[in-house]
Design a binder for these strands. Structure first.
Lengths: 343, 343
DNA sequence: CAAACGAAATTAAACGTTTTTATTTTGACA
DNA sequence: TGTCAAAATAAAAACGTTTAATTTCGTTTG
């Protein structure tokens, strides 16, 4: 037996396929009694909407493109990004809707740009979710110019507003620096993501201002930008601990780099809490298992990701982007005193 | 201007849409010269195939469903699964093909079963990639009975053969146990994934046989099954180190649980290399940043994932599943001696 | 009571392909 | 030059849906 279509229901009920279609779409043009008959018949024959027909007719794809920038196969370094959680959060937010998440894995920024250009021009999706934004992001410009629905995970400085979700990096760094300064730290290192990323800039700005507020000098030697791998964290601890006036605190942008920082401590014979401390900001919450556990600003990844999903839905429905902007403040989890016990 | 279709090309060339379609699909029914004209015209007008038309006409979806079982939003525990890499590997393998990866995030086994049932019965995809297989896996049975193309990441015991990719868990555990036994360990703990998972069984079997070969007794108290979170690793070190005859070696199924095991060492005052050692088997390769780094069987995730992608392609093309089965042997990376230096 | 109206249904066209069937063209051969 | 088969192209139908245009029919209205 063939899969039932609206034609099947039409025959079944003696109505025309147009009426059936309208009935199933809750059109006001069809009488409630008729609708009931149609719905009953649909139920009876086990009708399921065939998306291909809809897609061809309406031009809608019912796909949300998730652009995922994952490093190429050659790089086996862990970056501590829980893309899985991010993607499932989005996917779950779309669960009740007819939309599906279509994955576009790209290797780098240029590829993501090309991919987005293609999706937009060929309408391969109805909406796009993009992460790893740059301050001035050409991808955002492309989508804005095409009036294409999109949400970014991360902010930008574009003048035209767009939907975004992000952690409140500014506040997080500000409080983080203030807290360490309070505890007597005068040399605070910032392990930051790649310099071109929007949140790297936000964090750096906040860092500089917070230092100023605390009356501390800014030293470029205490700031590092790069891919947030353990290797990067380790490397910078090795480098910075050799400075004449080494840092007594490291603010790592994620837990992967924090883990690497620990490895650097180990290599240099530094003891956490005596020689220096490590703080992290992340969404993985794995740092509670470090030895010792460290203080972290923690943002459960499902929060921003579900928000991304619901925002892209609302965005595709035409809602104004101004209403779809959220900065989430991660929660401070203090796992160590973070005062140096010189002894 | 409208997006060009084959109709546009037909007008442009004066040919019929049928000929254009055939020409573009390399049909032998069309003269090479004609094909050249069509291709040139297509190029000129910037023609791009509209998938919706194809999908409606052919019934093919050009989607590969990737079933991803991610724990619900309530569980923030890291499980050290690099789904991102897995998904991108698959996605890259499909890059040259017309297929896209469509993501189906599910919360648990039951949901994955229901999802697969739906995909199969409603033909929502042309192929399925499923991970986390059970020994006797009802999802596999459903797909087999429906003659639906699929590849599993993980083995099963189904009699009918199917395409799969997996790490060679049997050999890995066998060698791992033998290596530790050689180094004088008589009490070797196995931190295993959830008992119902196929690879848990494979590993347990291999473990028992390897113990026997080494002349060591099997002690159920040294085996734990559960979700491979850091919490699980920690918990089991706390438990097992309290045994009258505690283990001197822990084989952790992934690096997340190994990290947790370290945390357990820390809590109990155990020193790695003196009181006990930790080994891991994983695809993350983050254990080189542990303090101290530990010995690991390492399988770069892009290998199995790209294989999954190419296998599902070949499977959808009708290739026999027997030809699409691979066990990959992870590489041993010795980062510590793993002999106990009692002292 | 006929005309006009409005609600609710139907008809028909369209979305862009592929594919089956029909038709035309071509070239070989008698 | 005419015939015929083979080759190349064209015509038409179909996939499942939505929607604009049209028809039907009962009700209101002047």
């Amino acid at each position: 037996m063939q899969r039932p279509t609206i034609k099947t229901i039409a025959q079944e009920t003696g109505l025309s396929i147009a009426t059936v279609s309208k009935a199933l779409n809750d059109s006001p043009q069809v009488r409630p009694e008729t609708r009931a008959i149609v719905v009953a018949a649909a139920e009876r024959v086990g009708y399921q909407l065939n998306m291909h027909g809809v897609q061809l007719r309406t031009g809608k794809t019912y796909q949300v493109a998730a652009i995922m920038t994952a490093p190429g196969p050659k790089q086996n370094e862990w970056e501590g990004v829980e893309y899985a959680q991010l993607l499932s959060g989005i996917s779950w937010a779309l669960e009740e809707s007819p939309y599906r998440v279509s994955l576009y894995a790209v290797r780098n920024f240029e590829e993501s740009l090309a991919t987005i250009r293609q999706i937009v021009s060929l309408k391969k999706a109805d909406g796009i979710i993009v992460s790893g934004t740059r301050a001035d992001d050409p991808r955002v410009r492309i989508m804005q110019e095409a009036d294409f629905p999109f949400v970014t995970y991360g902010t930008t400085i574009h003048n035209a507003p767009h939907a975004y979700v992000d952690a409140d990096n500014e506040q997080m760094i500000r409080l983080s620096v203030a807290r360490l300064a309070e505890r007597g730290h005068r040399r605070i290192a910032l392990i930051n993501p790649m310099a071109e990323l929007s949140y790297a800039i936000t964090r750096l700005d906040a860092y500089r201002r917070a230092l100023e507020t605390a009356g501390l000098a800014f030293d470029p030697a205490l700031v590092a930008h790069g891919r947030l791998t353990p290797a990067f964290g380790r490397e910078n601890v090795l480098l910075m601990s050799d400075l004449p006036d080494p840092p007594t605190a490291y603010i790592c942008a994620n837990e992967a780099s924090a883990l690497g920082a620990f490895s650097g401590f180990h290599a240099r014979g530094l003891v956490h809490g005596r020689d220096a401390v490590i703080n992290a900001t992340d969404d993985l919450n794995v740092s509670q298992y470090f030895a010792p556990p460290i203080t972290t600003y923690f943002l459960p990844i499902h929060e921003p990701s579900e928000l991304l999903g619901s925002y892209i839905l609302r965005c595709m429905e035409g809602e104004a982007p101004e209403a779809l902007q959220t900065l989430i403040m991660p929660k401070l989890i203090e796992r160590s005193d973070d005062r140096l016990s010189k002894g």
